[in-house]
Simulated assay, not measured.
Amino acid sequence: MRELALHLLDIAENSISAQASNITIQVREDRAADRLFMAVIDDGKGMDPEMVARVIDPFVTSRTTRKVGLGIPLLKAAAEACNGGLTITSAPGVGTTIEVEFQLSHIDRMPLGSLAETFLSLLIGSPHVHWVFDVQVDQDGFVFDDQPIKQELDGVPLTEPDVLRFVREYLEEGLRQVHINQA
């Protein structure tokens, strides 16, 4: 994967597969500390300690469509190559938190990519999930919680053209206001 947003998408899809009802994606850019933090937090099935220890192995996957799972191992390697790291906290029946950290200015750090498109894809692809997207750049923050919009829509699908346009513009404007560097 060439963009960090695609790694977030992959991990969030794992959360969906783990039957999560609530998924929060956090992105924090701390320019003074020269750090980029990302996290995906879910309330899915969770993993026992043995599986957590093995999940960074590219030949371990819970998917039945292929025999390898490269997303987390590749993200871990990318973070470590950029003076960062990856941690996984999980418990069966509770959920999983995957946190990753990079040196923000590291020459080998891949670009963040389009968070708006990633968030929108997750939102419309899994409307049954309660999504929270929390982005912070230094002291500026943008939080998108889909619950108020879903309540206001009262059954109108998120894929309706006017709704889709509104949500896309809302996400793009919120991210623009916090001045997140998606390149």
Rank of each mutant, 00 (worst) to 15 (best):
L120G: 01
L123S: 09
F142V: 08
K150P: 05
V163A: 03
S121E: 15
P161A: 11
Q139V: 13
S121D: 15
L120R: 10
S126L: 00
V137L: 06
V163G: 04
V129H: 00
I149T: 15
V135L: 06
L158H: 04
F166T: 11
T159L: 02
G155E: 10
L153G: 02
V143L: 15
V137Q: 14
L164S: 14
E160H: 07
P148L: 12
F144H: 08
T159V: 05
P127V: 09
L158E: 04
V137H: 13
Q139P: 08
R165H: 14
L164V: 04
Q139L: 09
Q139I: 07
L122N: 06
L158W: 11
P127Q: 06
V143N: 08
Q136I: 11
E152L: 11
V163H: 07
D138E: 08
L164Y: 15
D145L: 08
S126W: 10
L153M: 10
P161M: 06
P161C: 03
P157V: 13
I124D: 10
Q151E: 13
P127R: 03
H128K: 15
F166Y: 15
F144P: 07
L164N: 13
D146E: 11
V143A: 13
F142M: 06
G141Y: 04
W131N: 03
V129D: 01
D134L: 03
V135F: 02
P161G: 07
